[in-house]
Amino acid sequence: MPSASHTRNPFTHVETPAVGVAVEHLTKNFGSLKVLKDVSFTVEPGEIFVLMGPSGSGKSVLLKHVVGLEYPTSGRVMVDGHDAASELTRERVRMALVFQSGALFNSLSVYDNLALYPREHRVADEAGIREKVMHALRILSLEGAARKFPADLSGGMKKRVAIARALVMEPQLMLYDEPTSELDPVMSATISEIIASLREEYHVTTIVVSHDRDLALNIADRVGILMDGKLIFLGPPSELREPKDPVVADFLAPKIDLQHPRFKKLET
């Protein structure tokens, strides 16, 4: 396991207290489309919160509210006691979002993608930045890709570069949008380990959107399940092993029933 403890850690993580997140009665409409309907939950400082839910249920939209890329129709999201919709919050709290699509800067090489944040915020001199960047690349087994451009990467590599770019930011609050969706099983497990060890070492508050049951069951402190814009489950992952709610059970372990396929039920 390429854990951070094997290499000297150049991340000069200043001791900043972990931040909590509170989602309060969050409602979001896009025109007439109601995406989030009165969602409330909190994420404690240093907690790993895994958000699951079917495709289109509003998970990505929810994450965007936390980083202030979308504004609530009503309700609010508080990050460390500051309204996430305010621009000042970004200056007070270091947040990193790993976008579902990666959102890499296509005109910059992988190395420059990672180096952009420390350069713009002048966290270190060029040698220090180099050390940080190479360290993050090593963690994600990307050393060979440093000089490549995003267009020349595979889907899974893009995802890993996006995660590495977020690591370089040394965030207090880390948000992952489906970090393991395009990765092979070993790399998925590695990502789960990275998420967990970041929390262990730096007490980073983490919200992970994922369909990955293994990830949820192994590293989550608590799990939320979003369905049709409503939170239908909120609790520790142990409760998910034998869910009481049949809807939750079907979402987590859908039976493939060739005699009565789901898509045919829709037609009647």
């Binding site: 890329l69 200056e91 979002l97 890499l104 800067f105 915020h121 930011m169």
Partner: peptide
């Protein structure tokens, strides 16, 4: 969006 979340 990525730039904005990076506070750039």
């Amino acid at each position: 969006d990525a730039l904005e979340t990076m506070n750039i």
